[in-house]
Simulated scan of single mutants.
Amino acid sequence: MKKIYFIFILNTIIMTQLQAQDNDLQLIEKTINYYFDGMTTHNKGSFEKAFHPSATMKWIDKKYEEVNAIEALSEYANSNDPVETKTYMIAINIAGDAANAQLELEYDTFSYIDFMHLLKIDGKWKIVSKTYSTRTKNNKK
């Protein structure tokens, strides 16, 4: 009887943790979709929903660059018209209140490859850091 009770308790714990992780995954995907919306429709309000106010964006373009993510992405949205973009969530990893995601935004001639770091802050998942690289497409036909 003790063995059955132990298995029941263990199963309950595992199921609870899996449900919590599934819920976190859905909330992370929602946060990422706010980012995708901001990038594809140039809705600056979506960046504020996706990113923590002090989130950084980092990349290398001849030299290392680091800026406030919301400010830089909002400036990008203000100075460019939206273009057709395909968005992909490549991978999401969750460890407690921390997560990372690999994303791709595909344009006609290049793709942005994003690596996002997220934290669960006051019950909400927010992107706290974005690191990205650009990959050009080969024009071989």
Rank of each mutant, 00 (worst) to 15 (best):
I4V: 09
L27D: 03
T16S: 11
L118C: 13
K141L: 12
D22I: 05
K137W: 10
K141E: 10
L73V: 00
G123V: 03
Y5Q: 08
T131G: 09
E65G: 03
Y34N: 14
L73T: 04
E71N: 06
D108N: 05
K130R: 14
Y88Q: 09
T136E: 14
R135S: 14
I127W: 06
V67Y: 15
K86I: 12
E84C: 00
K137S: 01
Y34P: 06
I28C: 11
S111M: 09
K120V: 08
E71K: 07
K63W: 08
I14Y: 05
N33T: 02
I13Q: 01
K62E: 11
T85I: 13
I28L: 15
Q26S: 13
E29S: 01
A99T: 11
F8R: 08
I4H: 06
I28M: 07
D108P: 02
V128H: 13
D81W: 00
T87I: 08
T12D: 02
F115M: 14
I32N: 05
L10P: 01
F110Y: 02
Q19K: 07
F6Y: 08
I92D: 04
T109C: 02
S46Q: 15
K120L: 09
K130Q: 10
E71R: 03
T16K: 02
H117I: 10
L103E: 12
S46I: 10
M89Q: 04
A101C: 08
Y5V: 12
F110P: 03
F47L: 10
E84P: 01
F110M: 09
K49A: 12
E71T: 07
T136L: 15
S74K: 06
Y5R: 01
A50C: 15
K130E: 11
A95S: 11
V67P: 04
T136A: 14
A98P: 02
N33E: 04
M116W: 02
T85R: 02
K120Q: 05
A50D: 01
Y107T: 04
D122F: 03
E66G: 01
I32V: 14
E65P: 00
T56G: 15
K137D: 04
Q19D: 08
K124H: 01
K63I: 10
F6W: 04
T40M: 01
K120W: 00
A55Q: 06
Q102N: 09
Q19I: 03
T87W: 01
Q19R: 04
I32H: 00
Q21W: 07
A95D: 14
F36H: 10
T134F: 01
Q26A: 13
A20P: 07
G123N: 11
D22L: 07
K3L: 13
N93E: 12
A50Q: 10
Y112M: 02
I7R: 07
V67D: 15
A98D: 03
Q17M: 13
F51D: 08
L103F: 13
D24G: 06
F36Q: 02
K44E: 00
K140S: 13
P82W: 00
A98R: 11
T136Y: 14
F115L: 15
